[in-house]
Structure formats: C-alpha cells, structure tokens
Design a protein around this nucleic acid. Structure first.
Lengths: 233, 233
DNA sequence: ACCTGAACACCGTTCAAGT
DNA sequence: ACCTGAACACCGTTCAAGT
C-alpha cells in the first residue's frame, strides 16, 4: 500500500506559492484546502445530509474516488470542515484588556455566531473530535477566566459550564430557527391541548422568545456564579 | 391511494385488548408500538447510524416495506423513538413540594439521565420536532419556576436558559464519554503542543473533569441568577 | 505522487400487487 | 386493512490499474 498521509499528520499546508502551473485552464488541481472549502460550501447549501463524497468530487471536477487520496474517509471531511468553520480571529476585541467579563462575553458570542453562520456545525461538533481551532478557543477562554481570578482548581468546571451553555444555546437556536413555520404550528397545536400544557401555552414559549437576550442573560448569571468577586454590569 | 394515517393523527393506540389472535406462533403482528420499541433497541445497540429501515423490519420479522404502512418515513421513526425515550415519570420526587430548587434540580437531572441512558437521543433532539413528552417536561419546568416566583415576563428566558444548559451539558458529556481513549490521546497530543495550549494543558481539561459536579455547580449558578430571591443551599 | 472506473454491498422509498 | 417483492436512484468504499 502506498504511503498516504495518515490521519494525524496531514498534508503540508500550501505555504506561499502553491499552484504549479495548472495544466489545463479548467480546474486548479485537487488539494486538501480546496476539498475542505467546497465541503463547507456544500454543507452550507444542502445541510448535513447533502454532503456526499460523489457530489463533492463532482463539484471539484474530479473523479469520485480522487478524494480518497487526500482524505481517509467521509468522517475526516466532516472533521476538517467543522474545524475550518470555527477558526477564531482574535484581535477583534477593541483595545487592550478592558473588563474580563466583556472579553469572555465577546469570545462566547463570537463562538455562537460562528456556529449559527453554519448551522450544520453545531450538530456536528458534539460527536466529532476536538480540532485545533476548537482547542484554541478553549485555551483562550481558560486564560481569560484565569486572569479573572478563577482558582486553578475551579478552572475546568468553569470552562465546561460555559462550553455547555454555549453549545446548548446554539444548538437550540440553530435548530429552531430553521423552521419558523413548524414552530408556529407547534404552538398552534399547543393551544388545542391547553389543558395539558397551560403554562407554556400561556407564555407562548415556542413563539416570542428573545433568543439573543436569553443567551446573554443566562451567560451573565453563569459568570456571576463562576467569578463572584467582580461586580455585574 | 389508500387512506393511510397521516403524520399528525397517528394510529389509535392499542387501548386494552389489542392482539386479534396471532395467526402463527411466530411474530405478534406489526404495530406502531412494537416498531418504536425495537427502533429504540436498535439505536441503543448500534447508534444513530445503525438504524436502518431494512434492519428494523428484519428484526420485527416483517418485510422491509411493511413499516411504511405504519410510519411515514425514517424521520418519523426517529421522532417517535426520541419522544418515547423522554417520557417523564413524575411522582419520583419524594413527598410534597419541598424546596422548589430541589424540585427543579431533580427534574433537570432526571432529564439529563434519561438522555445519557440513550446517547443517540441527545444528538437527535436538537434537529427534531418537540414531541409530547418533551413538551410535558417543559410544562412542568415552567410551572415549577412560576411557583418559585419567576415573573411571567421572565419565564420564557428562564426556561430556555435551563434547557440550553441541560442540552449542552448532556451533549458534551455523552459524546466525550464514548471515547475515553480518544480523550486521553487528545490530551496527550496537547502535551506536545504545550506552548500553544499551556492553560488547558496544565489544568488537564480533557481528562479529569468532574462532569456531574460541573453540571450541578453550573445549574446552581443559573438558578441563583434566575430566581435570586431564594437562598442558595 | 496523484488520479481513475468498475464493482460491491449497502441505503430509503415508489409502485403495483397481493391477501 | 395490512403486508409484500421487484425495482429505482442513490450511497461509501475497496481494489486493481492507469499516468
């Protein structure tokens, strides 16, 4: 069997001048980066069930089996697409270290926003391995919390609490967003059963929820609990 | 086309004496309940990708296409299996209304436990519709929070914050649980990159996290924020 | 080193038909 | 009312082979 790149140590990334003169004017030759990029496009367009090795290869102007030289299998494509979408462009936060609280809020809202931009990512994340970009986000979060005075012994619990909250909020928001009609229908059918579900029927739980506001509020409560020394805004 | 049961109004549930004398001694005849039950078994055994209409029918001793008389399609099987697994047996909480806080904690921990018992359920929930059992849990949660003094205007935000947290915690826990080896390997590879991820490497984030403890702690913080009038335990 | 087509063992679902 | 087999249009992946 040929020595193909193993899963752990991947293709060397195109550093500076990659293109070695495209033979024909048609397609710029296969590469891991191109594969991942078009996989993301396809996922954005057709959702998680719309990504097909055959369709992906087609879109790249390649034979169906050509992908398998660059990639171990379909799972690997998912892993790569997921991590690609979660890159964290730091430096976004204005000026130096203002309030640590604002910094953490910004990081987590950016995380949520990144995932909502690619709704498939959120349902993929929990079952896949942690790629470098995800680890980077966790690292930065850990640093910020440390700086905020969270004790070393409480750090893991704090990180995971926040991670859990962000994941849950994003997953819920992302999946409910998709089908506003379904939600209306569901709330409608709730009305018919109002003797069974009076409370959430009255509060119109399925309809007029302010997702962004609820997200921020809950986060505020968590942060207050995790690092109680600081005063809330 | 024959008048088969539509998606919204399903088969009348077997009320009292269903079996009309099983012709042969072999199989007790197809029914929605049997289909859902074996679907759950199959999902428990082989995970989300292991459920196949063909395998399901086989396991039921039926032809592959017989399922489609009872069920619209595979998605419907997922919906039914999911809701079946999330039934809430109330009355579990001892005696009358003790502390509302304990009541809510119990409800949410039971929810989490139900999903962890069927790890596939948690990755299914966010993309499926809300079945009656899920709605029931939301209703009970809403009532408890109301009783605890959460204002009507804040009720939806409170419910969703808790829901988000539980979802996130369960999803993370469930997926990380599956592959302890992978985690160890990941933490190992972190060591190699300790100059990139020093903080989470030092805290051994991927290894010695106390999931159950972290879950309870974060929940406590949330509850303190949501209904600040009550004193923490 | 990189790409390919044919082939295998699967899928979910439609349809026309059986009892 | 309930169940079925044949058939269709797909899948992911192996393999032996091309350049």
């Amino acid at each position: 069997m040929p020595a193909k790149p193993t899963g752990s140590q991947r293709k060397p990334r195109n550093s500076a001048a990659p293109r070695p003169a495209p033979e024909t004017g048609s397609e710029p030759a296969l590469s891991l980066d191109r594969i991942v990029a078009t996989a993301v496009d396809l996922l954005d367009a057709d959702g998680i069930g719309g990504l097909t090795m055959r369709k992906l290869a087609d879109r790249l102007g390649a034979g169906a089996m050509s992908l398998y030289w660059h990639v171990d299998n379909k799972e690997a494509v998912f892993d790569l697409a997921l991590d690609a979408v979660l890159e964290y462009r730091a430096g976004q936060s204005p000026a130096g270290a203002q309030d640590w609280r604002e910094e953490v809020l910004h990081m987590l809202e950016d995380w949520r926003a990144s995932m909502l931009r690619h709704p498939w990512s959120v349902s993929l994340l929990p079952r896949r391995a942690l790629g470098p970009n995800i680890l980077c986000r966790l690292e930065l979060l850990g640093r910020a919390l440390s700086r905020a005075g969270v004790a070393e012994a409480d750090l893991n619990a704090a990180i995971w609490s926040l991670w859990n909250y962000v994941m849950g909020a994003t997953i819920t928001r992302g999946s409910f967003e998709r089908s506003a009609d379904d939600l209306a229908a569901a709330q409608q059918s709730l009305a018919g059963l109002s003797e069974r579900y009076p409370t959430i029927e009255r509060s119109r739980l399925l309809l007029d929820s302010d997702w962004d506001g609820a997200f921020r509020d809950g986060l505020d409560f968590l942060l207050s609990g995790l690092a109680p020394k600081t005063t809330p805004t």
